Computed example of a mutant assay.
Amino acid sequence: MASPFVAVAGASGGLGQLVAMQLIKRGVAVKALVRPNTNPSRTEKLRSAGVAITPVNLSEVPSLTHELNGAICLVSTLQGLKEVIHTAQGNLLEASVAAKVPRFIPSDFSLDFTKTQPGSNRNLDLRREFHAQLRKSGIAWTSILNGGFMDLMAGDSPMINHKSQKVPYIGQPTQLLDFTTMMDTAAYTAAVAADPNPAPNFLRIASDTVSAQDIADAQTKVEGVRYKPSWMGPVWFMEFMIRSLRLFGGEKEIFPVWQQMQYMTNMFSGAGKLEPLDNDRYPELSWTKLQDFFRQDKESPNR
């Protein structure tokens, strides 16, 4: 691509596609880095929108470097375990440095792992460890932390039991939790990637900050029947359950049951709480409130 562009790695995935489309809306040229065997149907929408689809082997740094020449930013939305977050993303970082890309946005998109205890969340640990590579690289980087994805509360969610009209929680029902929709996350990420101004290393955002009681109240208003918080026990008991379940395996899975429980523990203990928020950095952006999200989900034909 002759003109400056933003490269998006993992653009065939849900978040990656949204980031690419938000960049196109901003009039920014986009090069989508996808694996060579990616099904064309997964990138058809991007191609139709004018995104340059570029198959590339993430293990080949010279090829990646060539494709990144002229990029103003690399956005990684890769998801996986160590071989993805450390190795594949590390190759993207090395290639970005070699191609003199001005900014790198790693695939963090999570709770505030700068505040969680090492060992309390396997997937957050992988992100924390990758930051050692980031700091050594010398490249300007910005990590976007968005709490939990609000989209995970759509339909039959582990966080909401529609049959019993209950919202499971651990610890205290008043503990505040940060949630951001994938669309809001993508819009903010695109704004950062396209911003010619320097950005801090960490930006924290949330579409809405709510408690278990707030979740129940929002569902009550949308569904017209009363939802209640349902206590599952103290945080320490969940931590004990995680250690027990982990003995039975799941280390090669991205989201085994115990990994989901680790996120729940980090959220309801307050360890991963995002503060202060940087929502106001781009005033043109709007944020999806939880009740509006539930209403949109209820009206969705796919529900």
Rank of each mutant, 00 (worst) to 15 (best):
A190P: 03
T43A: 11
Q260N: 14
A187S: 13
G147R: 08
F104K: 10
G249V: 00
M183V: 12
V84S: 08
M232C: 04
I53F: 05
T114N: 12
Q260R: 10
V222W: 05
P62A: 00
L78N: 03
P256H: 06
S230D: 05
T65S: 11
N197V: 04
N146D: 11
D214E: 07
L124M: 13
T38L: 13
I254G: 01
A32H: 06
A154S: 11
G119E: 00
S137N: 13
G250K: 05
T43S: 09
V75P: 01
A191Y: 03
N123V: 02
G70P: 10
D292N: 14
F109S: 01
T265S: 10
T77D: 04
Q89T: 09
V19C: 05
S137E: 12
G138D: 10
A29W: 08
T180M: 11
T181A: 11
W258G: 05
D125G: 01
N279F: 10
D214A: 12
N123K: 05
G80C: 05
M1P: 15
N279W: 11
C73S: 13
D178E: 15
S41Y: 04
P106F: 00
M241S: 06
F104R: 10
V61F: 11
A191R: 01
M238S: 11
C73I: 00
L277G: 11
K163F: 10
M232W: 09
S59A: 08
G80N: 11
T174Y: 07
D112M: 07
F104A: 06
I215E: 01
H66F: 04
R127V: 06
V61I: 14
F294Y: 12
